[in-house]
Computed example of a mutant assay.
Amino acid sequence: MPTTWTDVDPLAYLETVQPERRRHDARVLLTMMERVTGAAPRMFGPSIVGFREYSYTYDSGHSGHAPAAGFAPRKSATVVYLPDGLAAHEEDLAALGPYRGGVGCLYLTNLERVDLTVLERIIARSFATVTAAGFGRRAAQS
């Protein structure tokens, strides 16, 4: 079953996040993403806090939708989703501070160790790219 938006209150969800470090980081990201996107948070599936939506189509023809900006506080790290891919942010990532990365995910263990100005710039650029006209008609990162 595909992941979809839910009616769960994101603020109530964040109060359940453990450990406390993840809960603290989630509050910082919530405020940052609200500012960047101008949107209220919504839950996408059981654990992703998302802001707005974009549609994608893979080269294979598979299509769907996902948050245009979002994060998920996990036990070992907070995941920040960058739908346009990490490669689009190489220069900023070099200045960010400690992180692990996947194709479209930043794994951050402690926001106090990264440059929040750089992180906000990365999120803002990713959001602008993903919400630009025509983005969803291109093949999304797989």
Rank of each mutant, 00 (worst) to 15 (best):
L93Q: 02
G104K: 13
C105Q: 07
D92G: 00
L111I: 06
E90D: 15
N110M: 07
A88K: 15
E90V: 08
A95D: 12
C105K: 06
R113V: 04
C105V: 06
L108Y: 02
V103Q: 11
E91F: 06
G102F: 03
L111N: 06
A88E: 15
H89M: 08
N110H: 11
E91A: 15
G102D: 07
Y107W: 04
A87S: 12
G97C: 09
V114M: 05
R113T: 13
A88F: 15
G85P: 05
G101K: 02
G104S: 14
L106G: 01
G104E: 09
A94H: 12
L93W: 00
L96C: 08
V114W: 04
P83T: 15
E91D: 14
D84W: 04
G102K: 08
G85W: 05
A94M: 13
L86C: 13
E112M: 14
T109L: 11
L96H: 08
A88N: 14
L111T: 04
G101C: 01
P83S: 14
E91R: 13
A88S: 15
E91S: 14
G104V: 07
T109A: 13
G97E: 07
V114A: 05
G101M: 02
G101T: 01
A87H: 10
V103I: 10
Y107G: 00
L96E: 09
L93H: 00
T109D: 12
A95N: 12
G97S: 10
C105Y: 05
L111M: 08
E90G: 14
N110E: 12
L93F: 01
Y107K: 09
L96I: 10
V103L: 11
P98Y: 01
G85K: 07
Y99N: 00
L86P: 04
D92F: 00
A95W: 03
Y99M: 01
D84Y: 07
G104W: 04
P83N: 14
L93D: 01
A87P: 02
V114Y: 05
A95S: 12
G97I: 10
H89E: 08
